[in-house]
Design a binder for these strands. Structure first.
Lengths: 139, 139
DNA sequence: TTCTATGCAAATGGTTTGCAGTCTA
DNA sequence: TAGACTGCAAACCATTTGCATAGAA
């Protein structure tokens, strides 16, 4: 999870400032756990206006500080990005979201490019299952 | 692309009927190409009520006849499913959506399961790039 | 002082729901 | 005739926008 300082410099490098409301929002997001909806942030930061929450989420997403997770049911949630390219592992039982990187996917994408003639630029992989904790709980 | 007949039996096997509006919607979707938004269907089928379009899309999605495509920008579109598990290849230039199956991904998922302790049940992979036609057009 | 950022409230857009009427087995 | 299905319109909900104000360089 990115530190406030690194977020501040990421903003600065694009000409944006880490204002008080933005700082408050980042802190709230850090407290919200591994994923959250826009509305969770709105509720957890009552001092910050709704519009600012959405504007900030979009800004942070553009900067790669926040990323989207597509859940099981197709709805989207947000998450503080762990940095670098990664994929999400979503637990269908408890909703936990964690991430993983996978170099192995690159070979697969090369293969797809070769077979289809596409130039492959980006991808999105979400994996759904049951996390170790939930598996243990269920025996 | 599934035929009307196969869709009718898929519906029947779950106790649903292929009514006239539903048939009209499927025909409209077939004419809409490789992907479409709910609203495209609403506009292309003026004789069918908006609510029926949404109810039918959901029904067909539950039956696996229609699938969701998550586009580049995170918005979701629909598509008549090609049957079986597959992934989507989305062209960022022209928006074309095609699909591909990939057995190679299974090994990768096994590996993820092994490393994380998750029981992996499902996944969603969307690949974004530029299709051969667009690449040719741009030289 | 100038430009960015904010808050509020209203507008928007897509999706769902309530309900009375229609169709079909 | 009973149950599934439909259309319409209203309700809903999340997100965006307009605009006047506040704040930082």
């Amino acid at each position: 999870m990115a530190s406030i300082d690194s977020i501040e410099s990421a903003l600065a490098s694009e000409g944006f400032r880490l204002t008080a409301p933005r700082r408050a929002l980042v802190e709230v997001m850090q407290g919200l756990g591994d994923h959250f909806m826009a509305d969770d942030v709105v509720e957890a930061a009552p001092a910050v206006g709704r519009a600012t929450v959405f504007r900030t989420l979009r800004l942070l997403q553009d900067l790669g500080i926040v990323c989207q997770v597509v859940l099981d049911d197709g709805t989207a949630a947000y998450r503080l990005a762990s940095g670098g390219h990664h994929h999400h592992l979503v637990c269908s039982e408890c909703g936990a979201v964690s991430d993983f990187a996978s170099g192995d996917l690159e070979g697969l994408l090369d293969d797809i490019a070769r077979r289809t003639g596409y130039r492959v630029d980006a991808h999105r992989l979400e994996v759904y299952g049951v996390c170790p904790d939930c598996r243990a709980r269920e025996g």
